[in-house]
Simulated scan of single mutants.
Amino acid sequence: MGTKSQIIEIATALFQEKGYNGVGLNEIINACKISKGALYHHFPNGKEELLIACLGSLNEVITKDIEEIFDQYPTIKEAMKAMIEKLIAKFETEGTITSYTFSSIVSEMGSLSEAVRIACSNLYTKIEGIYSNKLQSDGLSEESANSIAVTMTAAIEGGILLCLTNKTSEPLKMISQVLLRLV
């Protein structure tokens, strides 16, 4: 793994754990065991540029995983059930699901730039698109599929936060049951 990839991986974990405002550049530099010059070599515009790179990396990882699951199952119900079961299993074995969410970063949106807001929006839009396409392939109209995709995204993101906050996978189990009845 190259230095830039290492910085992105470590900074992503720190941002998810502590939020954007809760992590300083010195903490990232120390965790990566690099110099300040090395960080600025890869991210000349500093912390915000690094955050956008982290969001891009999360976008790739999260959407690739969702697409792989959704491609394996013929219906939205089967795909959604498999995806939520994977999240539940990850939480129950690892005690966290932070690699599947960026809500802790987004929660500080008011203090972040338009470029960061757009990077976050792009990820949500891509996830909603995956859900909507599967719903449409199950026969729903584009309008209905888009509405349900937004609901799914919000419910799953919220469920992940509730699991992390309450230290139980029950919220995702309940959400799975409700979403399966919805579709």
Score class of each variant (00 low, 15 high):
K167V: 03
K167Q: 15
L140I: 03
S147D: 12
A154N: 06
L161T: 06
M152L: 13
K134N: 05
N166K: 02
Q136H: 04
N133F: 04
T125P: 00
A145I: 06
N146F: 12
E128F: 01
G159W: 00
V150S: 13
K167D: 08
A149R: 06
S137E: 14
S141Q: 06
K134M: 02
S144N: 14
D138N: 12
I127G: 01
K126A: 13
V150A: 13
E143I: 15
L123R: 12
S132A: 15
I156H: 05
S147R: 13
I148F: 01
L123K: 10
T165A: 15
L161R: 09
S121A: 10
V150I: 14
A145H: 07
A149G: 10
L140D: 11
S121Q: 07
E157R: 05
K134R: 14
D138A: 06
L162K: 07
V150C: 05
Y131Q: 03
T153W: 00
C163F: 13
Y131P: 02
T165Q: 11
T151R: 05
C163L: 03
K134I: 04
E128D: 03
E157K: 03
Y124K: 07
S137Y: 06
I130Y: 01
T125A: 14
E157G: 00
V150W: 01
N133I: 02
A145M: 06
K167G: 03
E157S: 09
I156D: 07
I160R: 14
Y131K: 06
L164V: 04
S137A: 14
G159I: 04
I130D: 02
K126L: 06
S137N: 12
L123D: 00
C163S: 11
N122M: 06
T125K: 14
E143V: 15
A154L: 14
S144A: 15
A145N: 07
E143A: 14
L140A: 07
K126D: 04
N133Y: 03
V150P: 02
S144H: 14
E157F: 09
Y131I: 09
I160H: 02
A154E: 09
L135P: 12
Y131D: 02
